[in-house]
Nucleic acid binder design. Structure first.
Lengths: 147, 147
DNA sequence: ATAATTAAGGATAAATTTGTCCTTAATTAT
DNA sequence: ATAATTAAGGACAAATTTATCCTTAATTAT
């Protein structure tokens, strides 16, 4: 569904939401290990999320690392997709048709739009914080290693 | 959602379902033009669909081209995804976690699985033929050019 | 039989995505 | 002030996806 870069972005952001506080800010090495992603590549992605788009915040130096502002925690998960430039996946025609619309529907349109609507709703409704919370409560794990 | 190759595969197969008959078999040039895809690349994809996996059939020589057997027309759309090796998209965890499951759900799991179920159902239930029919009845267009 | 037509298949190239490495800049602790 | 730590950023490399081109094989029409 999403690119690896976006998958890493989602996992990293959720991890940061869980682990960061005023006292403790996970660094890129810790994050990459925790979510089982390539470290340098993840660093690039964190740069993206930190820079233009204000999803993630960071501080350099000893005890530095990444964290989320209270404002950022309330952002919908979709904002991560937007920051990664992969937001269109939620809107696009399944067949990849540029002119597919209500007026000129592709053969999948009518059925697919209902599903797409739910996808959009899910990514709009869920906040970054609420995902982190679900992690804490459920047995959910973010790392990707198979033991 | 899907790769370009798979989008072309879906469009091409639907087009063939519409246009082919005993008398008339669209060739790769016609198909590529109709669905607005790069010709040589589309030819490769048609080879894939023709070869191992028996989605599409073909005949060479003058008046040759591509067509679908009656059996193939009844195949679920999902079989095209399988032939393209992109079937896993329907099953995969949104966050890309290999060990995400009912037992070890990721933070998105519970909500996403409902949507995924509908996606799978859609691709399982719809047959190639039924899509072609919807095209004929509705105003749906397969080409991708913006006029 | 021959020529024309069309898909099959191989080799290769271009573009994009994924990934690494090294240097620089900022911040902190001493 | 100095050294240590950590993110930022640039340059580059590998892998994958997308795409083109050319030759070969099959089939048909003449």
């Amino acid at each position: 569904m999403f690119s690896k870069a976006t998958e890493y972005a989602l996992r990293a952001t959720i991890y940061i939401a869980q682990k960061s506080s005023d006292k403790n800010k996970p660094g890129m090495a810790e994050i990459a290990k925790a979510i089982d992603s390539p470290q340098s590549f993840t660093a690039k992605i964190l740069q993206l999320l930190t820079k233009n788009n204000k999803i993630v915040s960071s501080v350099r130096g000893p005890n530095g690392g990444f964290f989320l502002t209270d404002k950022a925690k309330k952002l919908p998960v979709r904002s991560i997709l937007e920051a990664m430039g992969e937001d269109e996946v939620l809107e696009k025609c399944v067949l990849g048709l540029k002119q597919c619309s209500e007026a000129k529907p592709c053969p999948m349109h009518t059925n697919y739009k209902l599903i797409k609507g739910q996808l959009i709703d899910l990514f709009e409704t869920k906040s970054i914080q609420s995902l982190a919370d679900e992690f804490e409560n459920g047995g959910a794990k973010l790392n990707n290693r198979i033991k």
